[in-house]
């Protein structure tokens, strides 16, 4: 449901995109940009079409998606569980605090070579990399979400006779869901980026591998085609999460759950 103002904005947004593509195409055709380095939108589009027509893309796309979904699921599960545990157990939270900070401050890319050594060239080294990214985002948000529960609502549930288990199920989880969902938007995107970086650094399949192969032979069109497919995948998955969020957060006032796309 888009308001009329939103719809006219969408038209403007599409117009801007078309103008940029036209400038790019025209610039290359007129010789302002070097075709070798910049390729052309029309070439990229036909390359994407060709990849799908020939069917060569499917194995790469499937590999990347499976890796991303696995790292997302594992990372979210671990992040939510750890977030709840630490938010409810002060001692554990204080104990782990410095180590979590150190671990989180580490740039993930440097872990990629280690994971390649540990888990090999297959999907698991990429999944491991994705998990390290997703885990921390979800963990910190869950932790915060559980900590920020409105104390009046918590006390009300207590007065109505809730046990600790019922408090978690009826108060803490729903209250933390808003935070968890805002982390899902971000982490699904990062999961895909992480596994693609992993593939780029060493793999035999996947969009990241495709891009690195194309780059190896200076095939700019191939690189851009890979990027285009990746972007569409990230947007599509993001909107799936958005739908799920809207369904589960039905109780929220409308203005706060109509956030779209961009995470």
């Amino acid at each position: 449901m888009r308001a009329p103002r939103d719809r006219s904005m969408l038209a403007w947004q599409l117009a801007l995109g078309a103008a940029m593509l036209a400038a790019w195409e025209g610039g290359v055709r007129a010789g302002v940009f070097d075709k070798f380095f910049f390729s052309r939108p029309s070439d990229i589009a036909s390359r994407v079409a060709q990849l799908f027509a020939a069917g060569t893309i499917w194995v790469h796309l499937a590999t990347t998606l499976i890796e991303a979904i696995l790292s997302f699921l594992i990372g979210v599960t671990l992040g939510v569980a750890a977030g709840f545990l630490l938010a409810r157990r002060r001692f554990l939270a204080d104990l782990f605090d410095p180590y979590l900070r150190v671990a989180n401050s580490l740039p993930r890319v440097v872990l990629a070579p280690i994971f390649l050594l540990w888990f090999g060239l297959g999907i698991w080294s990429k999944v491991a990399l994705g998990v390290t990214v997703v885990f921390f985002i979800v963990f910190f948000n869950t932790f915060q979400g559980v900590r920020e529960v409105d104390p009046v609502i918590l006390n009300n549930a207590r007065m109505l006779g809730a046990s600790e288990k019922q408090l978690i199920r009826h108060v803490l989880i729903p209250s933390a869901l808003t935070w968890i969902f805002s982390s899902l938007h971000i982490s699904i995107g990062f999961a895909i980026i992480a596994v693609v970086v992993g593939e780029y650094l060493g793999a035999a399949k996947g969009i990241g591998y495709m891009i690195s192969q194309a780059e190896g032979v200076f095939d700019t069109t191939g690189v851009f085609a890979g990027m285009t497919i990746l972007a569409v995948v990230v947007l599509a998955v993001g909107s799936l999460v958005g739908n799920l969020e809207r369904r589960l957060l039905r109780w929220k006032p409308a203005h706060s759950n109509t956030r779209e796309g961009v995470s």
């Binding site: 009046v152 006390n155 009300n156 549930a157 006779g161 209250s175 109780w251």
Partner: peptide
């Protein structure tokens, strides 16, 4: 205890809020 501040569970409907104590 009927609290001074809003204390309903925002994620439960009127009906589910009213029956919450029974559910517990």
């Amino acid at each position: 205890y009927m609290f001074q501040q809003d204390s309903l569970l925002p994620w439960k409907t009127v009906r589910d809020n009213i029956t919450l104590g029974l559910q517990f």
